[in-house]
Design a protein around this nucleic acid. Structure first.
Length: 287
DNA sequence: CCTTGTGTTCTCCG
DNA sequence: CCGGAGAACACAAG
């Protein structure tokens, strides 16, 4: 599941590769992905250049060379953005090395061809992801709906404490709310709660200041380490080179249900449903 | 029926 | 009665 660390991994990767390259052709293989008028989509992108790649939460937004034009790309659950340079081009597409994703493949939904013969492939197995062209106003409307970025300097312990307030709601669904904090998804919500030794079902107004401090630290630390490891590949995540992320081996609770707790050695990782989401935690050391 | 991110809809409460 | 909050549900495809 691409969450903040995975999307940031892709953003950093692509930033060194596709900026200011002329888009020579666009192949929209699956029209469902494009949420703009297809004709207009082609018209604006053809011959254009991507000037900047930004990320807010789990959403990528490309600043196009022409004024007032922005491209939103959301990976949702299974989206991949894979870049291949002209050296890897063979008949029928780009051939890959071991453990890589081969592109194009049956999940490939959009292909951008750049003037230097490099290509950007958008793969999306479940077709939930989208590409959408927006103007400045729509971009701002969209971005304004997001809460604070966890790595924003303004995201201090005090800010987090104020944000939590005296709500009675359970902590995990709150962490997943993109309008409060941007970019936390199911994996890092569970991992941050584990870090802070907090049961994901705890009501916010029962959290002690020391627990809030640990949770604030956990959100930042877990995602910082995940970015440094190039993200988590649980199922389909690949970086812009088509490679898996290495944070998977550091996961403490996500995907470990039924296994012994790696911290206390006594508890077992339990899996429950919380707010409609699978939720994993240690029954012994998370209170 | 499961997976998760997100948008919509509903209810509740002040 | 309005607005916000939060919960519940719907939807995407395999």
């Amino acid at each position: 599941m691409p969450e903040l660390p995975e999307v940031e991994t892709i953003r950093r990767g692509l930033e060194t590769k596709i900026l200011n390259k002329k888009i020579k052709s666009i192949d929209v293989i699956d029209k469902r992905i494009v949420k703009s008028d297809l004709e207009e989509f082609n018209e604006i992108l053809l011959g254009n250049k991507l000037k900047e790649i930004n990320r807010t939460g789990k959403l990528l937004h490309f600043d196009l060379h022409t004024d007032q034009d922005f491209l939103l790309v959301h990976l949702k659950m299974t989206g991949q953005l894979i870049y291949r340079d002209n050296k890897e081009l063979v008949a029928g597409g780009h051939k890959l090395r071991d453990q890589d994703v081969q592109v194009p493949n049956k999940a490939t939904s959009i292909i951008l061809d750049f003037a230097d013969k490099s290509k950007l492939y958008f793969n999306c197995q479940r077709k939930f992801g989208y590409w959408k062209l927006v103007d400045q106003e729509e971009l701002e409307d969209k971005l304004n709906k997001f809460g604070i970025e966890p790595f924003d300097n303004k995201f201090t312990l005090q800010y987090f404490t104020n944000l939590l307030g005296s709500r009675q709601t359970k902590i995990k669904p709150f962490l997943l709310d993109q309008s409060k904090i941007a970019g936390i998804g199911n994996i890092y919500a569970d991992e941050a709660c584990f870090f802070a030794k907090i049961n994901p079902e705890r009501r916010i107004n029962t959290l002690k200041p020391a627990e809030i401090k640990l949770l604030h630290q956990g959100i930042k630390e877990v995602m910082d380490k995940a970015i440094k490891a190039g993200g988590t590949t649980f199922r389909s995540f690949r970086n812009d080179d088509g490679k898996v992320g290495n944070f998977t081996e550091y996961l403490k609770v996500y995907g470990r249900s039924g296994e012994k707790c790696l911290r206390c050695g006594q508890g077992t990782i339990h899996k429950i449903k919380l707010g409609g989401r699978g939720t994993s935690y240690c029954n012994k050391c998370q209170h």
